[in-house]
């Protein structure tokens, strides 16, 4: 049997993504260390990330409510394998902590990095607080990570 023949094709594509209006406002708020959620007029659920409609009620969202940069750790993991960072094309260094955080004032949870990467020191129900970067760019990683409060 002959050796397999491979045709090598390299993909190099880029896309220009428009920011949804609600996301643009949210990102502008981050530059001032302000977090806001959108509340559904039907079910009352306060959404992060902000989006055009409540998926459960199919109602447009327009009612902004303030959200704290502190909340409750609802789920956590420690990632041991480096994964691709799609914005840089480089691998993200491991291990790192990852959590779902329910910020005070929001009903959905926010997926974000945790300062802590020792499983023995992480637990559901812990209070956590955002650690902001010095330079704010108006993006969700203006929050470097969340740290567990003593």
């Amino acid at each position: 049997m002959s050796a397999p023949v491979h045709v090598a094709l390299e993909m190099d594509q880029s896309w220009r993504y428009a920011a949804p209006a609600a996301m643009a406002r949210f990102c502008a708020g981050l530059k001032e260390r302000r977090i806001e959620a959108l509340r559904c007029g039907g079910c009352g659920r306060r959404y992060l990330p902000p989006r055009p409609v409540c998926g459960n009620c199919h109602l447009p969202l327009a009612d902004w409510v303030p959200v704290a940069d502190e909340g409750r750790l609802e789920a956590w993991t420690v990632v041991h394998v480096p994964i691709l960072d799609p914005r840089t094309g480089r691998m993200r260094e491991a291990p790192y902590g990852m959590g779902l955080v329910r910020l005070d004032g929001a009903d959905t949870t926010l997926n974000h990095f945790l300062a802590q990467s020792d499983p023995a020191r992480l637990a559901i129900g812990q209070r956590v607080r955002a650690v902001w970067r010095e330079q704010l760019a108006g993006a969700i990683d203006d929050i470097r990570h969340f740290e567990v409060l003593a």
Partner: peptide, 20 residues
Amino acid sequence: YWDRAVASGAVGNFALSVSQ
């Protein structure tokens, strides 16, 4: 605008709900 900045991959995402 969101998940690309704070990604943990398919395995990490699953692990989060496993902890709960």
